[in-house]
Amino acid sequence: MNERYSRQELFAPIGSQGQSKLTKKHVLVIGAGALGTGSAEVLVRAGIGKLTIVDRDYVELSNLQRQQLYTEKDAMQRIPKAIAAKERLTLINSEVEVVSHVMDVSVEELEQLVKDVDLIMDATDNFDIRMIINDISQKVQIPWIYGACVGSYGITYTILPGQTPCLNCLLETVPMGGITCDTVGIISPAVQMVVSYQTSEALKILVEDYQSLRKKLVSFDLWKNQHAAINVDKVKNEECLSCGEKRTYPYLTFSNQTKTAVLCGRDTVQIRPPKLADRNLESLAKILSQQEGKVSLNPYLLSFSVGHHRLVIFKDGRVLIHGTKDIAEAKTLYHRYLG
C-alpha cells in the first residue's frame, strides 16, 4: 500500500484498485475561484494523474476569505489565479501533473482543453460558459459536474452524457441573474459544501463506481438549515438541442454566445448577451445600490461606477464597460456584478 494514499485506499469503495485508476485520470477544472481552488486541492491531494486548471482573472484581497489556494502575497502581486493555483498545488503534491492556463475560456479554447480529459469540473461563475461546457460535454461524451453557490446557498448536479438530463434540459432558459457573490456575498462553508458534493461525485466517476453516484439535483442553505434533493431523471428531454436525438449543440454556435467588442478609441468594451431581452433596471439598481459603487438610473439605462470603471447597462441587456480595453477584465466585471 502506498503510504501517501493509505487512508484513501483503506476506504473500501476506493481501495488500491481505485487508487491505481485515479492515477491514470485527467480532470479539467474550469475556473480557479472559490469552487475551483477547493476542487483542485481535493483532487490533487487524492492523487489523480493530471489536473488542468484554467482562469482569466488575478488574485485580489477579497478572494482570500474563501479561495483556499491563495495567499496575501498572491493578492499583493496580483498573480493570475491559474499561476498561483499551480504553484500551490505542485507544493501539495508533486506527483500530480498540473497544467494551468491564464485564459478566457470560450468555445475554441474548450474544444482544445477537453482532449484526453476524463471529467470536467464546473467552477465557473456564470451560465454563458456553463452552457458551452454542457454542449461540449455532450459532443465529446465526457461527464461534467455543475456546482454553484451564493450567500449560504449551494446547488450541484452530475451530468452524464447519454444517461442523465443535461443542463439545457434542466434550465430550458438561461437564467439572467441579478444576484452574485459580489452583490449578496458568500460564506466559505457554502463553497466547501458544494466542493464536497462535487469532488465526492468526481471520485466516484474517476474510480468508475458509477453505481454510487447520487443521481439527484441537490441544493442546500447552510444559514437557513435547509436541504432539498430532487430526482430529475424525467426532465430529460428527447427534443433537447444539446443532448436529444436531433442535437445541434446550439451554444457552440456563434449566434448564441455572449459577444464582446472593444469600442475604438473609447477605452470601453461592449458586452452583448446572446438574446437581447428586457432587463429590469429598477430591481438591478436596488441590488447594485448595496455595493460600494455609485448607481444612477434613467428610463433607458443604469450607470454603475466602481473604482475606475463604469458599467452602463441598457434595457435590452447590452452592457458597456468603460475604463478598460481588456475583454477578459470587462467580462470579469460583467459577471461579477450582473451574474
Binding site: 451564493v150 437564467p175 451574474g339
Partner: peptide, 28 residues
C-alpha cells in the same frame, strides 16, 4: 412529481402537500 413550468399557475395547493424547491444560481 416534477411539475412543468406551465403548470405552476394552475396547480392548487392542499394542506399537507409535499414540495421540494431547487433554484439555480450562477456564482462560484
Amino acid at each position: 412529481m416534477i411539475l412543468e413550468k406551465e403548470l405552476h399557475q394552475e396547480t392548487q395547493l392542499c394542506d399537507g402537500d409535499k414540495i421540494e424547491l431547487v433554484h439555480f444560481v450562477g456564482g462560484g
